[in-house]
Protein backbone atom coordinates (compact mmCIF):
# COMPACT_ATOMS: atom_id res chain seq x y z
CA UNK A 1 0.00 0.00 0.00
CA UNK A 2 1.33 3.37 -0.97
CA UNK A 3 -0.04 6.01 1.42
CA UNK A 4 2.27 8.59 2.93
CA UNK A 5 0.76 10.11 6.04
CA UNK A 6 3.20 13.04 5.94
CA UNK A 7 1.97 14.06 2.47
CA UNK A 8 -1.62 13.65 3.59
CA UNK A 9 -1.19 15.87 6.66
CA UNK A 10 0.79 18.41 4.68
CA UNK A 11 -2.09 18.59 2.21
CA UNK A 12 -4.62 19.06 5.00
CA UNK A 13 -2.80 22.06 6.37
CA UNK A 14 -1.44 23.63 3.20
CA UNK A 15 -2.44 27.28 2.66
CA UNK A 16 -3.44 26.55 -0.94
CA UNK A 17 -5.92 23.96 0.28
CA UNK A 18 -7.37 26.21 2.91
CA UNK A 19 -7.79 29.02 0.38
CA UNK A 20 -9.72 26.56 -1.77
CA UNK A 21 -11.95 25.63 1.18
CA UNK A 22 -12.68 29.30 1.83
CA UNK A 23 -13.71 29.81 -1.77
CA UNK A 24 -15.93 26.72 -1.62
CA UNK A 25 -17.69 28.01 1.49
CA UNK A 26 -18.16 31.50 0.04
CA UNK A 27 -19.56 30.16 -3.23
CA UNK A 28 -21.92 27.80 -1.40
CA UNK A 29 -23.31 30.44 0.94
CA UNK A 30 -23.73 33.12 -1.72
CA UNK A 31 -25.28 30.79 -4.32
CA UNK A 32 -27.60 29.27 -1.75
CA UNK A 33 -28.76 32.64 -0.41
CA UNK A 34 -29.44 34.04 -3.88
CA UNK A 35 -31.05 30.77 -4.94
CA UNK A 36 -33.41 30.78 -1.96
CA UNK A 37 -34.57 34.35 -2.55
CA UNK A 38 -35.18 33.72 -6.25
CA UNK A 39 -36.76 30.36 -5.44
CA UNK A 40 -39.23 31.94 -3.04
CA UNK A 41 -40.17 34.55 -5.64
CA UNK A 42 -40.72 31.78 -8.21
CA UNK A 43 -42.87 29.79 -5.77
CA UNK A 44 -45.05 32.84 -5.09
CA UNK A 45 -45.25 33.50 -8.85
CA UNK A 46 -46.57 29.97 -9.34
CA UNK A 47 -49.42 30.81 -6.99
CA UNK A 48 -50.27 34.01 -8.87
CA UNK A 49 -53.74 34.63 -10.21
CA UNK A 50 -52.21 35.93 -13.47
CA UNK A 51 -51.68 33.07 -15.92
CA UNK A 52 -48.68 34.74 -17.61
CA UNK A 53 -46.84 35.08 -14.28
CA UNK A 54 -47.48 31.43 -13.46
CA UNK A 55 -46.29 30.50 -16.95
CA UNK A 56 -42.99 32.36 -16.63
CA UNK A 57 -42.23 30.63 -13.32
CA UNK A 58 -43.21 27.25 -14.72
CA UNK A 59 -40.98 27.78 -17.76
CA UNK A 60 -38.02 28.81 -15.62
CA UNK A 61 -38.31 25.71 -13.43
CA UNK A 62 -38.75 23.51 -16.48
CA UNK A 63 -35.58 24.81 -18.15
CA UNK A 64 -33.29 24.99 -15.14
CA UNK A 65 -34.17 21.58 -13.80
CA UNK A 66 -33.80 19.93 -17.22
CA UNK A 67 -30.37 21.25 -18.19
CA UNK A 68 -27.41 19.66 -16.37
CA UNK A 69 -25.76 21.96 -13.86
CA UNK A 70 -22.40 21.53 -15.59
CA UNK A 71 -23.89 22.69 -18.90
CA UNK A 72 -25.40 25.76 -17.17
CA UNK A 73 -22.04 26.55 -15.62
CA UNK A 74 -20.20 26.30 -18.95
CA UNK A 75 -22.92 28.30 -20.67
CA UNK A 76 -22.67 31.19 -18.24
CA UNK A 77 -18.86 31.22 -18.31
CA UNK A 78 -18.19 30.55 -22.02
CA UNK A 79 -21.35 31.29 -23.99
CA UNK A 80 -22.73 34.29 -22.15
CA UNK A 81 -19.76 36.61 -23.02
CA UNK A 82 -20.10 35.59 -26.66
CA UNK A 83 -23.81 36.34 -26.55
CA UNK A 84 -23.67 39.60 -24.57
CA UNK A 85 -20.52 41.75 -24.93
CA UNK A 86 -20.99 43.25 -21.44
CA UNK A 87 -19.82 39.96 -19.93
CA UNK A 88 -16.44 40.14 -21.72
CA UNK A 89 -15.08 42.54 -19.12
CA UNK A 90 -12.40 41.81 -16.54
CA UNK A 91 -15.00 41.98 -13.79
CA UNK A 92 -16.71 38.83 -14.99
CA UNK A 93 -14.74 36.37 -12.85
CA UNK A 94 -15.09 32.58 -12.63
CA UNK A 95 -16.47 33.12 -9.11
CA UNK A 96 -19.21 35.40 -10.37
CA UNK A 97 -20.06 33.08 -13.24
CA UNK A 98 -20.26 30.11 -10.88
CA UNK A 99 -22.40 32.05 -8.39
CA UNK A 100 -24.83 33.07 -11.15
CA UNK A 101 -25.13 29.58 -12.61
CA UNK A 102 -25.42 27.78 -9.29
CA UNK A 103 -27.93 30.19 -7.76
CA UNK A 104 -30.15 30.11 -10.84
CA UNK A 105 -29.99 26.33 -10.78
CA UNK A 106 -30.78 26.21 -7.06
CA UNK A 107 -33.72 28.60 -7.47
CA UNK A 108 -35.53 26.06 -9.65
CA UNK A 109 -35.24 23.33 -7.01
CA UNK A 110 -35.87 25.60 -4.01
CA UNK A 111 -39.02 27.00 -5.63
CA UNK A 112 -40.53 23.53 -5.77
CA UNK A 113 -39.67 22.98 -2.11
CA UNK A 114 -41.27 26.31 -1.19
CA UNK A 115 -44.31 25.53 -3.31
CA UNK A 116 -44.78 22.24 -1.51
CA UNK A 117 -44.34 24.02 1.82
CA UNK A 118 -46.93 26.65 0.92
CA UNK A 119 -49.40 23.93 -0.08
CA UNK A 120 -48.88 22.20 3.27
CA UNK A 121 -49.98 25.26 5.27
CA UNK A 122 -53.65 25.06 6.16
CA UNK A 123 -55.80 27.58 4.30
CA UNK A 124 -57.41 28.43 7.66
CA UNK A 125 -54.18 30.16 8.69
CA UNK A 126 -54.43 32.73 5.94
CA UNK A 127 -58.15 33.09 6.58
CA UNK A 128 -57.72 33.76 10.30
CA UNK A 129 -54.95 36.29 9.69
CA UNK A 130 -57.02 38.11 7.06
CA UNK A 131 -60.07 38.10 9.33
CA UNK A 132 -58.00 39.87 12.00
CA UNK A 133 -57.38 42.63 9.51
CA UNK A 134 -53.76 41.89 8.69
CA UNK A 135 -52.42 43.30 5.42
CA UNK A 136 -51.30 40.79 2.76
CA UNK A 137 -47.66 41.54 3.55
CA UNK A 138 -48.15 40.87 7.27
CA UNK A 139 -50.18 37.75 6.62
CA UNK A 140 -47.20 36.41 4.71
CA UNK A 141 -44.43 37.67 6.97
CA UNK A 142 -45.98 36.98 10.37
CA UNK A 143 -48.11 33.91 9.73
CA UNK A 144 -47.13 32.06 6.56
CA UNK A 145 -43.35 32.53 6.48
CA UNK A 146 -42.56 31.16 9.97
CA UNK A 147 -44.55 28.03 9.18
CA UNK A 148 -42.96 27.79 5.74
CA UNK A 149 -39.44 27.97 7.18
CA UNK A 150 -40.17 25.16 9.60
CA UNK A 151 -41.43 22.71 7.00
CA UNK A 152 -38.73 23.55 4.48
CA UNK A 153 -35.65 23.34 6.73
CA UNK A 154 -35.05 19.60 6.11
CA UNK A 155 -35.40 19.61 2.31
CA UNK A 156 -33.50 22.90 1.94
CA UNK A 157 -30.72 21.55 4.13
CA UNK A 158 -30.43 18.72 1.64
CA UNK A 159 -30.07 21.30 -1.11
CA UNK A 160 -27.40 23.12 0.89
CA UNK A 161 -25.31 19.97 1.18
CA UNK A 162 -25.76 19.27 -2.51
CA UNK A 163 -24.69 22.83 -3.26
CA UNK A 164 -21.55 22.46 -1.15
CA UNK A 165 -20.57 19.49 -3.26
CA UNK A 166 -21.50 20.77 -6.72
CA UNK A 167 -19.38 23.86 -6.21
CA UNK A 168 -16.62 21.44 -7.24
CA UNK A 169 -18.05 21.59 -10.77
CA UNK A 170 -16.75 25.15 -10.91
CA UNK A 171 -13.23 23.71 -11.15
CA UNK A 172 -13.92 23.24 -14.88
CA UNK A 173 -14.25 26.99 -15.34
CA UNK A 174 -10.90 27.51 -13.59
CA UNK A 175 -12.32 28.63 -10.25
CA UNK A 176 -9.67 27.79 -7.65
CA UNK A 177 -11.99 26.13 -5.20
CA UNK A 178 -11.19 23.02 -3.18
CA UNK A 179 -11.23 20.48 -6.03
CA UNK A 180 -9.28 22.70 -8.44
CA UNK A 181 -6.62 23.26 -5.78
CA UNK A 182 -6.45 19.53 -5.14
CA UNK A 183 -5.97 18.77 -8.81
CA UNK A 184 -3.24 21.32 -9.30
CA UNK A 185 -1.37 19.96 -6.28
CA UNK A 186 -1.75 16.45 -7.69
CA UNK A 187 -0.41 17.60 -11.06
CA UNK A 188 2.88 18.54 -9.45
CA UNK A 189 3.18 15.55 -7.08
CA UNK A 190 1.13 12.67 -8.58
CA UNK A 191 0.01 11.78 -5.02
CA UNK A 192 -3.63 11.01 -5.87
CA UNK A 193 -4.51 9.08 -2.73
CA UNK A 194 -3.26 11.63 -0.20
CA UNK A 195 -4.66 14.74 -1.89
CA UNK A 196 -8.08 13.32 -2.81
CA UNK A 197 -8.35 11.92 0.72
CA UNK A 198 -7.54 15.32 2.18
CA UNK A 199 -10.17 16.95 -0.06
CA UNK A 200 -12.73 14.33 0.98
CA UNK A 201 -11.97 15.00 4.66
CA UNK A 202 -12.63 18.71 4.12
CA UNK A 203 -16.00 18.07 2.47
CA UNK A 204 -16.87 15.69 5.29
CA UNK A 205 -15.98 18.26 7.94
CA UNK A 206 -17.87 21.05 6.17
CA UNK A 207 -21.03 18.95 5.83
CA UNK A 208 -20.74 17.86 9.48
CA UNK A 209 -20.46 21.46 10.67
CA UNK A 210 -23.49 22.33 8.59
CA UNK A 211 -25.48 19.45 10.07
CA UNK A 212 -24.81 20.82 13.55
CA UNK A 213 -25.98 24.27 12.45
CA UNK A 214 -29.12 22.74 10.90
CA UNK A 215 -29.96 20.90 14.13
CA UNK A 216 -29.60 24.12 16.13
CA UNK A 217 -31.79 25.95 13.64
CA UNK A 218 -34.50 23.27 13.69
CA UNK A 219 -34.58 23.43 17.45
CA UNK A 220 -35.61 27.07 17.25
CA UNK A 221 -38.69 25.97 15.33
CA UNK A 222 -40.00 23.49 17.87
CA UNK A 223 -43.29 25.07 18.96
CA UNK A 224 -43.68 23.77 22.46
CA UNK A 225 -43.57 25.35 25.90
CA UNK A 226 -41.52 22.32 26.98
CA UNK A 227 -39.15 22.57 24.01
CA UNK A 228 -35.72 21.06 24.56
CA UNK A 229 -33.85 24.26 25.29
CA UNK A 230 -30.72 25.23 23.41
CA UNK A 231 -27.46 24.92 25.23
CA UNK A 232 -27.27 28.59 26.08
CA UNK A 233 -30.74 28.77 27.60
CA UNK A 234 -30.11 25.53 29.48
CA UNK A 235 -27.17 27.24 31.15
CA UNK A 236 -29.47 30.12 32.00
CA UNK A 237 -32.02 27.74 33.49
CA UNK A 238 -29.37 26.16 35.67
CA UNK A 239 -28.21 29.59 36.73
CA UNK A 240 -31.77 30.51 37.61
CA UNK A 241 -32.17 27.39 39.75
CA UNK A 242 -29.43 28.46 42.12
Amino acid sequence: MDFRPSVFFEALTSPAFIAGVELTIALTVISMAAGLVLGLVLALMRGSSVAAVRGVAWGYIWIFRAIPTLVQLLFVWDALPQLIPTFRGEWFSPFLAAAIALSMNEAAYASEIFRGGLLSIDEGQRLAARALGMSPRKVFGKVILPQLIRVTIPPLSNDFITMLKITSLASVISLQELLARTQSLIASTFRFVEYYSAAAIYYLVLVSIFMVIQAQFERRFVWSSQAPAGRLSRVRQLAALR
Binding site: Q125, L127, A128, A131, G133
Partner: peptide
Protein backbone atom coordinates in the same frame (compact mmCIF):
# COMPACT_ATOMS: atom_id res chain seq x y z
CA UNK B 1 -62.19 43.58 8.39
CA UNK B 2 -60.64 44.48 11.72
CA UNK B 3 -64.00 45.90 12.89
CA UNK B 4 -65.68 42.50 12.62
CA UNK B 5 -64.42 39.57 14.69
CA UNK B 6 -64.53 36.05 13.32
CA UNK B 7 -64.30 32.69 15.07
CA UNK B 8 -63.83 29.53 13.03
CA UNK B 9 -64.95 25.95 13.39
CA UNK B 10 -61.39 24.66 13.42
CA UNK B 11 -60.03 27.50 15.61
CA UNK B 12 -57.26 28.38 13.12
CA UNK B 13 -54.82 29.45 15.82
CA UNK B 14 -51.30 30.27 14.66
CA UNK B 15 -49.29 27.16 15.62
CA UNK B 16 -45.97 29.00 15.87
Amino acid sequence: RSDIGMVFQRFNLFPH
